[in-house]
Nucleic acid binder design. Structure first.
Lengths: 230, 230
DNA sequence: CCAAAAGTGTTGGTTTTACACCCATGG
DNA sequence: CCATGGGTGTAAAACCAACACTTTTGG
C-alpha cells in the first residue's frame, strides 16, 4: 500500500465472505447450501455468504454467517482463498473471501437451518451451483483433505467424545479411501492428541463396546507440519 | 452470497493488493520495500501495493504492482492471505489481498526500482514497517519456507541455468539452515525436476567448473504434495 | 603441485506398510 | 454359543540421516 489516495467510493468493489460449511451426516461428507430465491442464478444453489460490515473483521463476518445458518457456537474456521475475477458476479464487482468451517452433526446444528431452502448436500452429488461456487467447493475439498492428512483437524467433525472407529470412519469418508485399522490407531496414538475417557459407547447395537476418547484441545498446533497420514 | 442487495458504495471497503517480493541478493533473502512519503506511517517502510482496479482480477492487480516495482516479466506469484481487520489502516476500511512473488536477481529486476525510496531489505534485518506489514512478512516467510520444503519452488529464485551448489545455497539461505550436499543432490535428482545442460559455470574463480542445470517447466505440479526436504 | 570447489555411495536407524487373530458384549 | 464390532503385534520394505574421499580445474 504505497499510494496516497483512496479510490472514490464508486470505484470500490463490494466485499463478501462465503463460508463453505462441511459436516459429516448420514455417513457422507455434506456441505450446507442455500437455494437462491432471486436472480442472478435464481433457483441455483449457493454457498452461504454475505457482505462484510463496516466494523467487523473478515473472520467475524464469517462467524456471523455461520451462526446465521447453523446456530453453531464452536467451530473450526479457516480462511480459504479470495476470489476476485471481475465477472464472477453479474451484479457488479464483488470480491469474496472464502472460508471453510467444520461443524458437528448434533442438534444445535439443525437449529438455524429451518429455512427450507437451506439444505445439506453430499459433496459427491452436488447440484448446479451459482457464481463460481463450484470452483470454491472444489478448492475447499482439496484443502480439507490436505489438512486432514497433515494436521489433527479431523476431530472437528466429531462430537466431544468419539470412538476410534468413528474417527477412522470420518477420515475415510473425507479422504474417500479406506485406511488400515491398526496403522490408523497407531498413528493417532503416536500423535498424542487423544485422551481416553473411562466411558464406553454402549447399546450401540452388536459387539464389544468401544472406548470413548476426547481430543486434547491444546494439541492441535503441535501436530501441524508433521504428517499424520502420509 | 445469498443476499439480494448490494451494499451502497459508501459502505464498501477499499480493496488493495500487496505483493511481498522476495529475491536472493548478496547471499541473503531480501524483500522489496517502499518508504512511505506521506502519512500515515510517513517514513516507515511498506510492502508495495495498490488498489484493485474495476476491471482487473486480483492476480492482474498483483502482476501490475510487481511490474511497476521491478519491471519483471516472468515470476512466481501466489496468493498468500487476505488481511481485513477494520483498524489495520487508519485512513479507513481497507482490505488487502496479499500475494508473494519470487524474482530472480538479474539486470531486468533493477529497471523499475529506480525510485530511491524503493529498496531491498534483508529479511533478517527489517526496518520498522507500516500498517500490519510486519505480520504479512512473517506470514510470507513462513509460507515460502513451507513451499520450499514441499514443492519445487526454489528454482524460481535462480536464473534459468544454475549449478547444484547454487541451488543448494538458495535453499540454505531461505531455510536458514545448512543441508547435506549428497542428500540434497540425491533428492533433487530423484525428484526429476532438473535437466542437465552440457555447459559449465566457468571462470567462476577457483575450482572445478560445475555443470549447469535447468528446471523442467512442466515438472512443478508433480512434485507438489510430496515432501522434497523433510 | 597446491588450493578450491565439484562430484559421488554406503550403512545403520527409523518409518511405513501389509497383514490376521483374539476379545468383549448382546441376543 | 454365535454374531458383531473392538482391540492388538510383527516382519519386510522403503526411506532418511550421517558421514569422507576422489576429481577437475586454475594459478
Amino acid at each position: 500500500m504505497s499510494e496516497g489516495y483512496l479510490p472514490s467510493p464508486t470505484e470500490r468493489p463490494a466485499v463478501s465472505v462465503d463460508v463453505v460449511i462441511f459436516s459429516l451426516r448420514e455417513g457422507d461428507l455434506k456441505v450446507l447450501l442455500i437455494r437462491r430465491a432471486a436472480p442472478p442464478f435464481k433457483g441455483k444453489w449457493a454457498i452461504p455468504g454475505g457482505f462484510v460490515r463496516a466494523n467487523e473483521s473478515l473472520e467475524e463476518a464469517a462467524l456471523r454467517e455461520l451462526e446465521e445458518e447453523t446456530g453453531v457456537q464452536e467451530v473450526y474456521l479457516e480462511q480459504l482463498y479470495t476470489f476476485g475475477e471481475p465477472k464472477r458476479d453479474p451484479r457488479g464487482r464483488i470480491i469474496t473471501v472464502a472460508y471453510f468451517a467444520l461443524v458437528v452433526d448434533d442438534v444445535s446444528t439443525h437449529a438455524g437451518a429451518e429455512a427450507s431452502e437451506t439444505q445439506w448436500h453430499s459433496m459427491h452429488a452436488l447440484p448446479e451451483l451459482a457464481f463460481d461456487h463450484a470452483e470454491i467447493l472444489k478448492y475447499a475439498l482439496q484443502r480439507l483433505r490436505y489438512k486432514l492428512e497433515y494436521t489433527a483437524v479431523g476431530f472437528e467433525l466429531l462430537p466431544n467424545e468419539f470412538t476410534l472407529t468413528e474417527l477412522q470412519t470420518a477420515y475415510e469418508i473425507v479422504l474417500g479411501e479406506t485406511l488400515d485399522k491398526r496403522n490408523f490407531r497407531r498413528r493417532i496414538q503416536d500423535a498424542e492428541v487423544l485422551s481416553e475417557t473411562n466411558r464406553y459407547r454402549e447399546g450401540d447395537g452388536q459387539g464389544r463396546p468401544a472406548k470413548l476418547y476426547r481430543y486434547k484441545k491444546n494439541a492441535t498446533t503441535e501436530v501441524k507440519a508433521r504428517r499424520l497420514f502420509p
